[in-house]
């Protein structure tokens, strides 16, 4: 049900530019207006989310650890699994963000007869890393459409990525990797009944949307060629804030690609995809495990109105004397003086 719903939505999204550009010829709308609007939503939406998160107080220091914390000098401290200083936290974060280190520990749980058995499950990690790193490389390679002259780094990435020169134009390896990653991630949700049970339309939709983007991009490169020179004119115009419609018509497939990208960008800040910035705000990852060495002050704490023993004693002096309870003036004087000095 969730799967079909997301799939149908994606299909409808594909059809919108087919009708809009193919039948109605609304090139300026789909080529200039929608991408700009989507990019603005992406930008300000994400900044809004970042500030919103940064304003939320973090009551406790709750890093999740899976190694020996810093202790006595002769006990080996696991610096990445249980970071003590901020430097170690940054290092842990780096590996988390670029290599998905915690995902590498992903486990599967199976019931064999009546026994619960845990095993290693690296598929999720493999699919995720293939997908994310390929996406990054593809985005960097796409800079060739937006920048003139093309930066040499982008040029080098493209050359390395097409190293085996399969076909003309050569197929990029990251294109194959990202497809493999996306299908792994999708299959995991479809095949594994436990994950399937947990999957909502909002889990399938991004997968279908990105699959749509990737498949339209690859088709555009390999089979249904579009005028890439004209794409450059359009994209370069967008990037230099002097948008023009290119001098030659670009195929509808390109507008499908661009429209799906625009939808992704606009959807990004309000969906699960914000985990891109969310990961930096994870209190289980971004805090050092030094609770015992450094007191963490809960930002919720506010000055509580309390009564000291001496104030209390002052208030009930008569009653206490009457009842024969000893009055400790000496001590109160001492503490008051000590406080004055401090």
């Amino acid at each position: 049900m969730n799967v079909f719903f997301s799939f149908i939505i994606t299909l409808i999204l594909v059809l919108i530019p087919v009708v809009g550009v193919g039948l109605l010829g609304l090139d300026p709308l789909f080529g200039i207006v929608i991408p700009y609007v989507a990019f603005l939503i992406f930008f300000f939406g994400l900044i809004y989310r970042i500030i919103d998160w940064a304003r939320s107080p973090q009551p406790f220091k709750i890093p999740t650890t899976c190694g020996q914390q810093k202790s006595l000098p002769w006990i080996k401290h696991s610096r990445l699994e249980s970071p003590f200083t901020m430097k170690e936290v940054y290092l842990r974060m780096f590996f988390e963000v670029f290599l998905f280190r915690s995902l590498f520990r992903n486990l599967r749980a199976d019931l064999v007869g009546k026994r619960l058995i845990y095993g290693s499950a690296k598929w999720l990690w493999l699919g995720a890393i293939l997908f994310h790193l390929s996406f990054l490389v593809i985005m960097l390679r796409h800079l060739r459409f937006f920048i003139h002259p093309v930066p040499s780094l982008v040029d080098i990435i493209a050359k390395v990525d097409g190293f085996f020169q399969l076909g003309i134009p050569p197929i990029y390896h990251t294109d194959l990797f990202i497809l493999a990653g996306l299908f792994l991630l999708l299959l995991r949700r479809l095949v594994d009944s436990k994950v399937n049970y947990l999957s909502h339309a909002s889990d399938y939709f991004p997968l279908f949307l990105i699959l749509g983007i990737v498949i339209s991009g690859i088709l555009m490169r390999t089979i249904f060629k579009v005028d890439v020179q004209a794409v450059k004119e359009l994209a370069y115009g967008l990037a230099t804030f002097s948008p023009v419609l290119p001098s030659h018509k670009i195929g509808v497939l390109f507008y499908i690609h661009l429209f799906l990208v625009s939808v992704l960008a606009a959807y990004f800040p309000f969906s699960k995809l914000v985990h891109m910035v969310g990961v930096f705000f994870s209190p289980t990852r971004n805090l050092p495990n030094n609770n015992r060495a450094e007191r963490y002050i809960n930002p919720w704490d506010y000055p509580v109105k309390y009564t000291t023993y001496c104030e209390w004693q002052e208030r009930f002096r008569d009653v206490m004397e009457e009842a024969g309870i000893p009055i400790d003036d000496e001590w109160c004087k001492e503490t008051a003086e000590a406080q004055k000095q401090a």
């Binding site: 937006f146 003139h148 990037a239």
Partner: peptide
């Protein structure tokens, strides 16, 4: 994410 914009230094040259 604004790389496409600032890497051109905001000026449009003719392709």
């Amino acid at each position: 994410f604004a790389m496409p914009f600032w890497l051109n230094f905001g000026k449009a040259k003719a392709l």
